[in-house]
Amino acid sequence: MTEASLAFSDLDARARAMAGDVPADRISVRDHVVDVEIGAFQAERGVTQRLSFSVVVEVSDHGGAETDDVDDILSYDTITEAIMAELEAERLNLLETLAERIAQRLLLSPQPQRVFVRIEKLDRGPGKLGVEIVRDRASGDADVEAQDAPAPILAFLSSTALTAEALPTFLDQFEEDGVPTILVVDADLPLMQDSWAARNIVLLQADQAAWQLASIDPRVVPVGTRTELDWGLKNEQLSVWAPSKMVLDAVDAPISINLVDLTLWFAQQVQACQILWVGCDAPDTPGISSHSVMLEDLS
């Protein structure tokens, strides 16, 4: 089989061609179609499109054929669950990222030795637009577990708190205590109708408020991704959340223009240990410690 024909063949043919002298057993799921919101273009936000997943997993020797026990094999559900787990984790821009994460998740199981992943967009052109990757245990860090970020304190800074003379002293206290902290800044937004456009405007204004705080105090670093947030928590950085990317990329973020609602959702995402509401009354927050810090307490 030529390289050109192999490139356009199904994954099983590619797996057979790469098998070597001792072909491995293969488990596969083909043409698994899911409606997904994905894509880097603005036209792909707020809508779903069909993705087709084909996955072939080469597995190590097992006794499933002899025992007829499902626990002795790699289940097909393991493949489909890996796909759905990565789709539900966050909204992604690139098929390449999604394919990589599915492959690495599958390689966390003991049986897979090599994984072939093909993902195709079915609705973005006259044909199928897709990517295909091959990963094995030597090509990734599947056996290395990421260090968990510590549970932070969230401090919600009201618009009045931002103008308080004692705000630098308040931030000093976090620095001295060395407690992992993420700041959330109220953008003091006017009430607007609930719509996709209004939600985007609110999030962009909240991003601007985060950068405004950074201009007030250079110790504060605006961060917009979970990776940046985790790094900041592990490295004693005083971070302020710029929410637009994380909210727009999430599959379970509230459809709300209320930054308090988004803060409560964010607290769950980062497993915050408590929330401080600075310069405003604390809302009801079941399941998490929540306290008001009045402006007079900042002096």
Results as ranks from 00 to 15, higher is better:
190 P>C: 01
275 I>R: 10
122 L>F: 00
80 T>V: 06
248 L>F: 04
90 E>T: 13
175 E>Q: 14
242 A>Y: 03
168 P>K: 14
34 V>R: 06
50 R>P: 12
263 T>Q: 09
143 D>E: 12
216 I>K: 14
184 V>N: 12
72 D>H: 09
94 L>Q: 12
246 M>R: 14
68 D>M: 04
72 D>Y: 05
49 Q>T: 01
63 G>Q: 15
189 L>R: 04
214 A>G: 10
17 A>H: 07
167 L>P: 08
10 D>S: 11
172 D>Q: 10
49 Q>Y: 00
83 I>K: 04
287 G>W: 02
294 M>D: 15
192 M>F: 04
224 G>C: 11
61 D>M: 06
177 D>S: 12
231 W>H: 14
240 V>L: 07
31 D>C: 08
297 D>T: 13
187 A>F: 00
125 G>Q: 06
224 G>K: 15
179 V>Q: 06
235 N>Q: 07
153 I>V: 06
88 E>A: 07
83 I>C: 00
190 P>A: 01
206 A>L: 04
124 R>I: 08
201 I>T: 15
222 P>Q: 04
55 V>C: 01
92 L>N: 11
289 S>K: 06
95 L>E: 03
206 A>F: 02
162 L>C: 09
124 R>D: 09
158 S>H: 06
219 R>I: 10
56 V>P: 07
269 Q>G: 00
29 V>T: 09
147 Q>H: 14
271 Q>N: 11
135 R>P: 03
118 R>Y: 04
90 E>M: 07
21 D>F: 10
77 D>V: 14
215 S>C: 11
73 I>C: 01
205 Q>K: 10
46 G>T: 11
254 P>R: 09
255 I>K: 15
181 T>A: 01
163 T>Q: 11
278 V>E: 02
63 G>H: 12
186 D>Q: 01
39 G>R: 00
13 A>F: 07
84 M>L: 12
97 T>Q: 11
192 M>V: 10
112 P>E: 04
258 N>L: 00
127 G>E: 10
173 Q>F: 05
13 A>H: 11
81 E>L: 09
60 S>A: 03
250 A>W: 00
213 L>Y: 06
98 L>R: 05
26 R>L: 05
117 V>Q: 06
92 L>Y: 13
50 R>L: 01
50 R>E: 09
235 N>V: 06
291 H>G: 14
172 D>H: 07
217 D>F: 00
266 F>C: 08
279 G>S: 01
231 W>S: 14
197 A>I: 04
120 E>T: 06
150 P>E: 11
189 L>F: 01
84 M>N: 15
193 Q>N: 15
132 E>A: 06
194 D>K: 08
252 D>V: 03
230 D>W: 11
129 L>G: 05
